[in-house]
Nucleic acid binder design. Structure first.
Lengths: 113, 113
DNA sequence: CGAATATATTCCCATATCGGAATACAACAA
DNA sequence: TTGTTGTATTCCGATATGGGAATATATTCG
């Protein structure tokens, strides 16, 4: 087996920095492909490919209008990621961190050089 | 160029489901490799490899004790991910969602079959 | 020392990736 | 029709993955 497909997961899809950029841009609202190309300065074919990945995992939806395709962010698809990371939030906010630091300081003072 | 290395980023590192599992386990505290092996039922070499990746991106730290190595979660390294996803939180909480749904319903009623 | 235990490393393989370049396609314009 | 514009698809090559299996390394035990 190889690495999981980028299209298998929102987790895998957002591992790509450019896809995160695209998501960031689409957060301001629906956009046609060409605008993504211009704003982010990524070649058109790659933009289409990245959008394809995002669509496959449900992170964006498309609306066709003439020869343009407007891509729209479907933020809900990011929630699983948020939920997962949030689980660990307390671990980095915890005052225990400071407490530990404090205790270390105390210990350091007890054994002055 | 190929896909970015799994070791290039926390984003890339957590794309792997098993690595997320490992992180989940280590959230309860420091653990030796063998306990991860037993609890998650992943072959030992793969566990060592996954832990290696997590270490490289700073998601875990190691403490050596005799022939054991205790891996500990460094939750802070997850914060960038949290921060990024959080940016979009309002987009899925937004009541605008409900408003849109409501308006659609209205429209549907105006044009009764 | 030799055996056992805990963990890491190395090889191998099937599989995808991402970017670039070229090209296909569809809608619209003249 | 022919040309143009907006987007998608295909082919290429370099690269790395993750699992499995075998093996290496280090520490502890008897």
């Amino acid at each position: 087996m190889a690495r999981a497909a980028t299209t298998s997961d929102a987790f895998n899809a957002i591992a790509e920095p450019r896809r995160r950029q695209i998501i960031g841009l689409l957060a301001h609202g629906e956009r046609p492909v060409n605008e993504v190309v211009k704003k982010l300065r990524i070649a058109q074919p790659q933009v289409s490919k990245h959008l394809g990945v995002l669509e496959k995992v449900g992170l964006v939806t498309v609306r066709e209008a003439g020869r343009q395709r407007f891509y729209k962010l479907n933020a809900k698809a990011l929630k699983p990621i948020h939920d997962w990371v949030k689980t660990f939030e307390r671990l980095w906010n915890e005052r225990l961190d400071r407490l530990a630091d404090y205790l270390n300081e105390l210990q350091a003072q007890e054994k002055p050089k």
